[in-house]
Simulated assay, not measured.
Amino acid sequence: MKDVSHEDIVARALSVTPGAPPAACYAGFDVTADSLHVGHLLTLHVLRKLSERNVLPVLVLGGATTAVGDPTGRTQSRPVLSEDDIAANMEAIQAQLLRLMKGCKPVVLDNAEWVTPLTLMELITGIGRQVSMSSLLASQAVKTRLDSDGMTLTEFLYPIIQGFDFMTLAERMHRMDCPAFLQVGGSDQWGNMLAGTELIRKMRPDLEGFCAAFTHPLLLTKDGRKMGKTAGGATVWLDREKTSDLDFYQFWRNLNDCDARAMADMFLDEMPAHHINEPNSTACDINALKTRLALRMTTWVRGEEAAILSRELAENRTGSAGPAFDVVRAQLVDDFPALVVDLDLAATRSEVRRLMAQNGITLDGQPATTEVRRAARGTVTLSRGKKRHQRLCIHE
């Protein structure tokens, strides 16, 4: 946990004995696309772990909040989706969530159920009077938007709607004799979560000792960027129609060493991986860790058969590439033609440039453009065509 509003309530939720009414924990998922992406996986992993402690997972799809548009982490408004698009996205994401949470018996709800009937007067006089403008203006998401493209009133109301979600669900769970009710999300959602705890404190003080919010760290790369992009900048989706099984596996397998250790500490049920940073550790240690991570994540999201096949395809792709060749990033980015010649993958620099213009030189299967080379991390495979390969270990 990163931020916690009420540690005693979280402790109570985690100490419910088997056979007693379970505590519950909810997370929200706006349906802005027809698939979740890897950035959602840590929230789901936390919910799976909580279910092992007799905490009921409650998954709230944002049928209403998707139409509002969460401004968090955005410099511009999100595209407006039609009702049909939202409905189609919701159907697809619900199927994903049920598959990823298999065995945890989650409850899936749509917040349009209680937000849509809310009248304007109820919002203004009932909820609006309880919300401080100063707290909304202090939100980092609001500050960022006001300093860039500005924001609409609709987006400004987003934290209030999310807070109303929390209060409405808390009322329901309290009537079900739940001993405690939690909300979890990434640390960038902390401001929105506090809007909910504050709304409960003012409108339902009888539930204040029943509810708590907590966050987990965001999945970030070592340089602070949100994790979830391939070397070429494409989003890594959970849907295999949008990101292939092999590309999904390779995303985890090709993480740089630092990011792989961090992800292993979060997702692998074993001893912390940071000991693989000691002077006597070897490249085999970290590569084995990356393989375990890639297998675990691909098995969870795509299934065991897809994970095993992806590993075989990845190993066949790099099997003839030999040992990794150490290169510094500046050489990969700024002096790439010379590097390819030095590796005996081409005879001259002009030949390299000609091959690159034909997409004949690739990094991990992607055309070796400047953007791809700049984004590459850890160990990658440099290929000329389909038969000549060289593994590279990139150093800053």
Score class of each variant (00 low, 15 high):
366 Q>P: 06
88 A>H: 11
35 S>F: 09
395 H>I: 14
232 G>C: 06
179 P>V: 02
42 L>Q: 07
51 S>A: 15
81 L>H: 02
216 H>L: 14
283 A>C: 11
287 N>K: 14
262 A>W: 14
320 S>W: 11
108 V>D: 03
62 G>V: 01
148 S>R: 13
110 D>F: 00
231 A>R: 08
214 F>P: 01
88 A>D: 10
75 T>S: 14
67 A>M: 12
319 G>S: 15
248 F>C: 02
119 T>Y: 02
335 D>E: 12
21 P>K: 12
100 L>W: 04
390 Q>M: 14
189 Q>P: 01
108 V>A: 02
302 R>G: 02
284 C>A: 11
58 V>A: 00
265 D>L: 10
373 R>W: 04
360 G>K: 07
342 D>S: 14
363 L>F: 09
71 P>C: 04
215 T>W: 03
3 D>A: 13
54 N>E: 10
373 R>I: 05
384 R>W: 08
193 M>W: 03
293 L>K: 07
23 A>D: 03
142 V>P: 01
333 V>M: 05
236 V>T: 02
146 L>F: 04
323 P>F: 08
294 A>C: 05
323 P>W: 10
99 R>K: 13
314 A>T: 14
188 D>I: 04
59 L>S: 00
244 S>H: 06
158 Y>F: 11
352 V>K: 01
189 Q>E: 04
102 K>I: 08
195 A>N: 11
254 N>H: 15
205 P>G: 06
134 S>Q: 15
35 S>D: 09
310 S>D: 03
216 H>N: 13
165 D>Y: 00
262 A>V: 15
298 T>W: 02
49 K>F: 13
306 A>N: 08
188 D>E: 12
